[in-house]
């Protein structure tokens, strides 16, 4: 398990039906590129988050493939349509097999 991985998500608490809302996500992760060498000249193995998804009530908003060129502490900003009250589920997939999740409820009034 990569150390100190902590997802953070910003989603508005409420919206009107069909409204486009802005979502921001940030997760602490070193995103070791596999291009660097340690002090002894040995290549430091790649260890990154390679996929991120956001779904709302089970339906896809965005599915991102990440390569090592994504910066340390990956940040994403995108927009979602909210048809009804429900839950956003966010999932990050680590090279080492770990999966990190977060979810946020939103109320449509």
């Amino acid at each position: 398990m990569a150390e100190n991985v902590k997802p953070r998500v910003r989603v508005p608490r409420d919206a009107t039906a069909g409204e486009a809302i802005v979502i921001k996500t940030l997760i602490s992760h070193t995103m070791e590129s596999g291009q660097r060498k340690d002090g002894d000249g040995n290549t430091i193995p790649r260890s990154i988050i390679n996929r991120f998804t956001c779904e709302f009530n089970g339906e896809l908003v965005i599915d991102v493939t990440l390569e090592p060129a994504i910066s340390t502490n990956p940040y994403f900003e995108f927009q979602a349509t909210v048809p009804e009250t429900g839950t956003f589920d966010f999932t990050w997939y680590d090279d080492d097999g770990d999966v990190y999740t977060d979810s946020k409820d939103i109320t449509v009034g």
Partner: peptide, 12 residues
């Protein structure tokens, strides 16, 4: 604060 990666460490 959400855009500032330094705040990750404040959370920690």
């Amino acid at each position: 604060d959400f855009e500032n990666p330094g705040m990750i460490f404040v959370d920690d």
